[in-house]
Simulated assay, not measured.
Amino acid sequence: MTSATFWDNLLELFYVLIGLQLAYTSYKVFTDKQNSKRIGSGLFWLDLGLLFALGKVLPTVISGLLVVCLGIITIFNQFEVGKFASFSMDHLLASAKRYRNWVFFPVLCLAVISMLLAKFIPGSSKVAIGLAAVIGTGFAWVIFKGSAKATMAESDRMIQAMGTSGVLPQLLAALGVIFSLSGVGTVIANAIGGVVPEGSRFFGVVAYVLGMVIFTAIMGNAFAAFTVITAGIGIPFVIANGANPAIAAALAMTAGYCGTLLTPMAANFNALPASLMEMKNPYGVIKEQAPMATVMILVHIALMYFWAF
């Protein structure tokens, strides 16, 4: 077995594990008699679990039909987020005093371990986050005296709390690919070509960063913007002028997140918090984030210009 095959198989294993967790959530929803729409909600999670666990072997037509079924369930309002018992505030305060900053350790493991794996073990980047999650979960069990049962229960709670928005990253990433294949990137490249001076690294960088910010603001997510803007602006106007592809692409993605801070289309980040906190101004979160987002846009332009070349 080659190294590439090993990492591909391990990646597929993680997809299967996610599918099994979603299937468990489906079972919990089906048996939740307090959920008035448990049939539709359970089918939603079971459908998504099948896509994750069997996506590699399912015929494309079947996968497409399963995705359509997800849409049908939500269109006909047959999905409902489950209700969970609230935690005791006294218990939470006692746990906070007991564990203090150790509560952050498993989460920090995700970032640190995934970065180390991707940097020092060739080919592991595609599964680095999955491996880091497994290791971080192990640390959590040791620190908090956890168990597999508790982990599954809390994973189920988190999945149900996210609701249908949990599939948004996958849908937006697919949308970006569709836009790219349909030629949107070529249209953008032709439009930018008439504005950006040929061979200008600086204006190419400005166009790449601002393109990511604006398109992310329109789409509500940087995943959808990345494929289109990189194909239409990044490759012909930045990378073709000698920029390091890895550095330029990484900075372009984080530049897109600046657009996320500025748009109500990013409902999970901007509209939902304003609603939950009952803010008078529904755009209050965006208003507070806008100055920092503007500064970070300028920082990204500088970093890409001086670091990528």
Rank of each mutant, 00 (worst) to 15 (best):
M1F: 13
M1Q: 08
D8F: 11
G19V: 00
Q21M: 13
T25H: 08
F30K: 06
T31L: 12
Q34S: 14
I39M: 10
D47P: 03
D47Y: 12
A53S: 14
A53E: 12
L54S: 05
G55Q: 06
L58G: 04
I62N: 01
L70G: 14
I75R: 11
V81Y: 05
H91E: 15
R98M: 12
R100A: 14
F105L: 15
F105N: 01
C109I: 15
I113F: 12
S114K: 07
S114H: 13
L116Q: 07
A118R: 00
I129R: 00
I129G: 00
A133K: 04
V134T: 03
F139P: 07
F144S: 05
K149G: 02
A153C: 03
A161K: 10
T164G: 05
G166A: 12
L168T: 13
L168K: 09
L171I: 13
L172K: 10
A174Y: 14
A174V: 04
I178D: 10
V184K: 02
G185L: 06
F202E: 07
G204V: 12
V206W: 10
V209L: 08
L210G: 03
V213Y: 08
T216M: 04
A224K: 09
F226Q: 11
T227E: 14
I229K: 08
A240V: 01
P245C: 08
A246N: 14
A252H: 15
A255M: 02
G256A: 09
G256F: 11
Y257I: 08
T263Y: 07
P264W: 10
M265F: 07
A266F: 08
N270Q: 13
L272S: 12
L272G: 03
L276C: 04
V285H: 03
E288Q: 09
E288P: 00
A290Y: 03
I297C: 04
M304G: 03
M304N: 02
Y305R: 05
W307C: 15
